[in-house]
C-alpha cells in the first residue's frame, strides 16, 4: 500500500532508479573484474606474503618470516640495486633523447611525418625481439654498435657480458623504443604559443634561453607524465633483460648484473614455486612504487606548471 506521490516526481524517481540499474549493468563487467582480478588478488597477495606456499600444499602461516628473509636475502638487495641503477640511468636518458627528437621533428617541415614514423616504429617491436636485438647489435666482439664505435677509434665494451656494462647496454637498447615519448612531447611542443617565443626573442633570449625559460615550463606537464610512467615501467622492467640474460632450457644461464627485481620475483614465484616469498616481494614492490609516485607528486607541485587551468 503506497501513498500516491505527485505523478511527475514518481516518474522521475522511477526513472532514476531505472537509470541506476542500467548504469550498474553497464559497469558490471568492471565491478566483477575489479573484485576478482584486482581487489581479491591484492589482498590475497598480502595474506600469502605471511605464509609458506608452494601451490601443492596448503599455505602455512609463518608471520613476518618472509619479510625477515627478504631483508637478509643478498639477491633481493642485488635486484633492488640493479633496478634502481637502471631506472636512474634509463629515465633521464630516455627523456633527453625523446625531447631532442621532438624538438627536431618540430623543425622538420613537410617531411615530419616520415621522420615521426621512423622514430615510433621500434615501439611496435615485441620486447622479446628487442631482447634478441640487444644480444646481436650490442655483442662485444662483432656487434654493430661496437663496429660503429670503432670508426671513431673507440674500443666498445662487452655490453652483453661485462657486469659493469650490462645495465648501460640495456639502457642503450631502451633508447630505441622512446617513440611514444617523442609523440607526446611533440604534441606538447605544438601547444607553445608563438607570441611567447617572439616576446622572449625580442628580450634577447637565445635558443637555449627560450627552451629553458619558455618551452620547458610550458611542456612540463607532459615531461612530468613521461617521467612518472617511465619510472614505474623501469622499476618493473622484465622482458628485454629476461629474454637476453636468463634462460631455462637446454642451458640454464643467468647474469647477476641484469637481475632486475621483477625477474627475481618471477623466478621465485614460477620457477622455484616460493609463492609466499614472492608475494612478500610483490608487496615490497607495491610499496616502492607507491613511495616513488608520492615523491614525484610532491615534486610536481614545485616544478610542474599547469597553465590555463583545466579545459
Amino acid at each position: 500500500m503506497s501513498v500516491a506521490a505527485p505523478p511527475a516526481r514518481r516518474a522521475a524517481g522511477g526513472r532514476r532508479r531505472r537509470e541506476g540499474r542500467a548504469a550498474l549493468l553497464f559497469i558490471s563487467p568492471w565491478l566483477i573484474g575489479f573484485a576478482v582480478f584486482m581487489a581479491y588478488p591484492v589482498l590475497y597477495t598480502m595474506y600469502l606474503s605471511l605464509t609458506d606456499y608452494d601451490v601443492i600444499n596448503d599455505p602455512t602461516f609463518v608471520g613476518l618470516e618472509n619479510y625477515r628473509e627478504l631483508v637478509s636475502d643478498e639477491k633481493v638487495t642485488l635486484a633492488l640495486r640493479n633496478t634502481f641503477i637502471y631506472t636512474a640511468m634509463a629515465v633521464p636518458a630516455q627523456l633527453v633523447l625523446s625531447l631532442a627528437l621532438a624538438l627536431l621533428l618540430q623543425r622538420a617541415g613537410r617531411a615530419a611525418g616520415f621522420f615521426r614514423t621512423a622514430f615510433f616504429l621500434p615501439k611496435m617491436t615485441p620486447p622479446v625481439a628487442v631482447g634478441v636485438l640487444l644480444l646481436m647489435l650490442l655483442n662485444g666482439q662483432s656487434g654493430l654498435l661496437n663496429e660503429f664505435l670503432g670508426w671513431f677509434g673507440i674500443n666498445g665494451p662487452n655490453w652483453t657480458t661485462d657486469p659493469d656494462w650490462v645495465k648501460p647496454g640495456l639502457v642503450v637498447m631502451s633508447l630505441w623504443t622512446v617513440g611514444s615519448s617523442v609523440i607526446i612531447l611533440l604534441a606538447a611542443l605544438q601547444e607553445v604559443p608563438d607570441e611567447l617565443l617572439d616576446a622572449a626573442r625580442v628580450d634577447g633570449a637565445g635558443w637555449w634561453g627560450r627552451l629553458r625559460h619558455v618551452v620547458l615550463p610550458i611542456i612540463s606537464p607532459a615531461i612530468y607524465f613521461i617521467v612518472v610512467v617511465d619510472t614505474i615501467a623501469s622499476l618493473q622492467s622484465f622482458t628485454e633483460a629476461y629474454t637476453a640474460f636468463f634462460g631455462a632450457g637446454n642451458t640454464t644461464y643467468s647474469n647477476d648484473a641484469a637481475l632486475f627485481y621483477a625477474i627475481y620475483l618471477f623466478q621465485q614465484a614460477f620457477e622455484f614455486l616460493h609463492m609466499g616469498y614472492a608475494s612478500a616481494m610483490a608487496v615490497l614492490l607495491f610499496g616502492i612504487v607507491m613511495v616513488v609516485t608520492a615523491v614525484q607528486v610532491m615534486l610536481s607541485r614545485r616544478y610542474v606548471h599547469y597553465t590555463g587551468g583545466p579545459r
Binding site: M38, P41, Q236, A262, L265, A269, M281, L285, V289
Partner: peptide, 9 residues
C-alpha cells in the same frame, strides 16, 4: 597497481 601485486593470486 603493479602487475606483480596481482600476478600470483
Amino acid at each position: 597497481i603493479p602487475g606483480a601485486a596481482t600476478m600470483i593470486p
